[in-house]
């Protein structure tokens, strides 16, 4: 087993591969010392205690871990934290503006677009990203482009209703 040559060491920081990562998280410059194998999702949840970003599979299959990175929606479970050095990340905790809920957040509450709420942060971050991409022209396309975000509670229609309330597709005429 190739790993057994590492000597027993209960202090992670002594592993010599520790990297320094600097990124902006929800507008705040943040520095972390991390081994390279820590995913962005676990960096957020375990190291920064930003648990709003959820883990539903850890394999890129559910969308619960979606965050915004430099203006694009990404799956934080499939992203190594060290690869996002110098990036700007927005998590669900940073979607509201100084306590004023984002229109999508308001619409989610109004349309009852969640039950357990566990997929919700990912749905909202994904919807923010989808709206910025501006590709979807109608409800069916919004459904398609949001289909990477699963909801086991079956709040699918209300989620799309909430997004459609806020999203005004650009018309290219």
């Amino acid at each position: 087993m190739e790993t057994t040559q590492l000597s027993r060491n209960t202090n992670t920081s002594k592993i010599d591969c520790i990297r320094t990562v600097t990124f902006t998280i929800n507008g705040q410059s943040t520095q972390l010392q991390l081994p390279p194998w820590v995913s962005l999702l676990d960096a957020l949840r375990h190291h920064l205690h930003l648990t709003g970003t959820k883990k539903g599979c850890d394999h890129g299959q559910c969308g619960a871990c979606t965050v915004m990175c430099d203006g694009k929606r990404i799956l934080s479970c499939l992203t190594l934290a060290v690869s996002k050095d110098q990036s700007s990340i927005t998590t669900i905790e940073g979607i509201a503006d100084n306590g004023e809920l984002h229109p999508l957040q308001k619409a989610f509450i109004e349309y009852d677009a969640f039950q357990c709420g566990y997929c919700t942060p990912g749905q909202i971050c994904s919807a923010v990203g989808m709206m910025q991409e501006g590709k979807a022209q109608n409800r069916a396309e919004v459904q398609e482009l949001m289909s990477g975000n699963l909801c086991r509670c079956g709040a699918n229609s209300q989620i799309i209703d909430a997004i459609m309330e806020v999203y005004i597709p650009e018309t290219h005429e």
């Binding site: 930003l50 648990t51 509450i109 109004e110 969640f114």
Partner: peptide, 16 residues
């Protein structure tokens, strides 16, 4: 009524 815990769930403040 909308869910009373709604704001906590849409801002990621609800802890599991």
């Amino acid at each position: 009524l909308s869910r009373l815990e709604g704001a906590l769930k849409v801002t990621g403040a609800a802890q599991y």
